[in-house]
């Protein structure tokens, strides 16, 4: 006796779904996560990777199966079956992608909200945001920290130009070519460009924001892993675009305070970060 094809199809489908889920959970294509929103991003990535693997392997499998099963044998003539459509089937395969897309859309909205993306950009009622007169045109505001009410964000002014980033700490009046940030404290970058459009990207933070002349933008993140990570300019900005890189150094609050104390032109009497940590 033969096993009914419907059972085999069901088993193949289940194996495919399980394999897709396994791939999503176990194949790691991303760099190390070093900010609070990076694990959130990685969660979205794993879900998308699972769904994508199931769809891709399923469709490629169907094609290969069709090409073998329905190939024209040697000497065979004539046509295939004259089937022109199947409305219930077509409704079904319109509905399935619609549901998947809707799910992915709602899920990624949730992810984006958890990353702070839905916080209004120009609501500068929060602490540490002194320069609030100017409109912010894009980016991600500090969020969620407010709920804890724990740590105020460290403000840093970023100036992008051909072909460098300059970081200025308004609290301690330090100007630096590298971005030093303390572990675990939110950082709010107020970003301006002097000449052309640049983009501030730290792959390990999973964050990117264009820096646009004439339109200040904002980017917030909370570093969660000590180390040195590249800051990469991601928007074509001229001949040396590929060389426009810097480094973000995530360090323990104590060593960050020491760095501030060592570099500040003013006496570090009231270093705000040291107080908080």
């Amino acid at each position: 006796m033969r096993i009914p094809p419907a059972i085999l199809t069901l088993l193949a489908g289940m194996a495919l779904v399980l394999f897709g889920l396994w791939v999503g959970q176990n194949v790691n294509l991303l760099p190390v996560d070093a900010s609070a929103n990076a694990p959130v991003y990685d969660e979205l990535f794993r879900v998308l990777f699972s769904i994508g693997s199931i769809l891709f392997i399923g469709i490629v499998g169907l094609i290969l199966y069709s090409l073998v099963r329905f190939r024209r044998r040697v000497g065979e003539t004539g046509d295939g079956a004259a089937i022109e459509g199947n409305l219930p089937l077509e409704i079904l395969w319109t509905a399935i992608p619609a549901v998947v897309v809707l799910f992915v859309g709602i899920y990624s909205y949730d992810i984006y909200d958890r990353m702070g993306g839905m916080t209004p950009l120009n609501d500068h009622g929060m602490h540490g945001m002194q320069h609030s007169e100017e409109r912010t045109w894009g980016g991600i505001s500090p969020v969620a920290l407010e709920a804890d009410g724990a740590i105020a964000p460290l403000p840093v002014d970023v100036t992008a130009m051909q072909f460098a980033f300059i970081f200025h700490y308004p609290d301690s009046d330090i100007t630096s070519g590298e971005l030093h940030v303390p572990l675990g404290q939110p950082v709010a970058l107020q970003m301006k460009a002097l000449d052309v459009i640049h983009a501030f990207w730290v792959p390990q933070f999973r964050l990117k924001q264009d820096v646009i002349p004439g339109q200040p933008t904002l980017l917030s993140f909370t570093p969660t892993r000590a180390g040195q990570y590249p800051i990469v300019c991601a928007e074509l900005c001229g001949p040396y675009h590929g060389g426009m890189r810097s480094t973000v150094i995530v360090e323990e609050p104590e060593s960050f305070a020491a760095w501030v104390a060592k570099n500040s032109p003013n006496p570090p009497a009231e270093s705000p970060t040291a107080v908080q940590s």
């Binding site: 069709s66 090409l67 024209r72 004539g78 295939g80």
Partner: peptide, 8 residues
């Protein structure tokens, strides 16, 4: 493709 007589 399904159920055709496919010349590859």
């Amino acid at each position: 493709l399904w159920g055709g007589k496919i010349s590859l």
